[in-house]
Design a protein around this nucleic acid. Sequence first.
DNA 1: GCCATTTCAGAATAGTCATTCTAAAAACCA
DNA 2: TGGTTTTTAGAATGACTATTCTGAAATGGC
Lengths: 197, 197
Amino acid sequence: MSPRSLTDRSQAIDAAKELFWRRGYEDASIEEVVQATGFNRYALYSAFGGKREIFLAALDAYYQERRSIFLTNLDDPETAPLDAIRRVFEFAITEMAERGTGCLMCNVATGAGPLDPLVAERIETYLEEIRCAYIDALERAQSRNELNPVMSIEAGAALLITLMLGLGVHAKRGASAAVMLDVFDSTIKLMASPSVQ
Amino acid sequence: MSPRSLTDRSQAIDAAKELFWRRGYEDASIEEVVQATGFNRYALYSAFGGKREIFLAALDAYYQERRSIFLTNLDDPETAPLDAIRRVFEFAITEMAERGTGCLMCNVATGAGPLDPLVAERIETYLEEIRCAYIDALERAQSRNELNPVMSIEAGAALLITLMLGLGVHAKRGASAAVMLDVFDSTIKLMASPSVQ
DNA sequence: GCCATTTCAGAATAGTCATTCTAAAAACCA
DNA sequence: TGGTTTTTAGAATGACTATTCTGAAATGGC
């Protein structure tokens, strides 16, 4: 197959994302990328440049999908903010548990050796965007008196991110969705205003 | 240097642990292990078998050190259980932030591809032991009415483990000790009995 | 149907790695 | 010291990798 059309290209990126998520960057060989994408080697190299660039495109695609799901939920004015956060975690936990491959971003972040600068930069950007979305949601929760005043907004957002990263590690080692949902439920219950509990 | 004596051997394991922690399993070559340990290649192979076995020994050593610090703190009858938990996290956070290499176990757990079965088995054992120690500490806290009844003991222990893993990922990407301590502080404050707050 | 261009599959290349081998150096011991 | 064993440093091996090259096949335009 040739990388002529844009849909071909984005299908290839999607297949590569799938592969890198399942097998990791180092362990997935170009041969496997060729198999997974249906592109031949020559076409892959002329379309992307090299393995690293294919991976960066896959990582971007991975984030854009999650970003859209996260932000759509968190920004929904119809939903109580803490419920929106719950939906985000339910999605992520279910997905990670079903696949058993954890979170691509999280796997990459802890991967061997010092991080590729371009990868590190992307992860910073991604996490910052998610952090802001959490902060917005928590601010709305606070203004509705649904937030436990013991915890600051900033700390709450940082906790949610840390929790999600931790769940990614858990999922990679085969934790069940039930256990992970239990961890999240307990946390969000603590974060909620005592009067709501 | 030769691996004749036990102290030579354990010093070599320690140097290997240091190296694998900093560079990751895949990225650290045998040449680097040779440099780091001071053992020559032949001696390394006859003493350990191969790279994988050196790594397993290093992982064990890593865990034994942390295990001893964690359990010593958590089992101390002189300390209030939540304070003991705080000390454990303060130690881990300080160490991870100073080194900027995250947590070896956590890095390995999320590493590329499916886990080596022997590594996976060890991680299960390690985490289960820590989980039990958290459960003991939380039970003591509960019996002293220092625990928020909204959260179950089991969920609390799972949350602490998830938090620690998440902080490991954060640390790998260069989070500061201050931010990480803030996340922990907020969480433990929420976990504490409202009457204590 | 024919030629020019593109696309293909796999071979060739160059590099890296873990591991084993080897021949010299060192250590040991009588 | 002399002779045997151990230890060493580095070369050889074999397997694997990403990337480039190549000659054949397919395609496209006329």
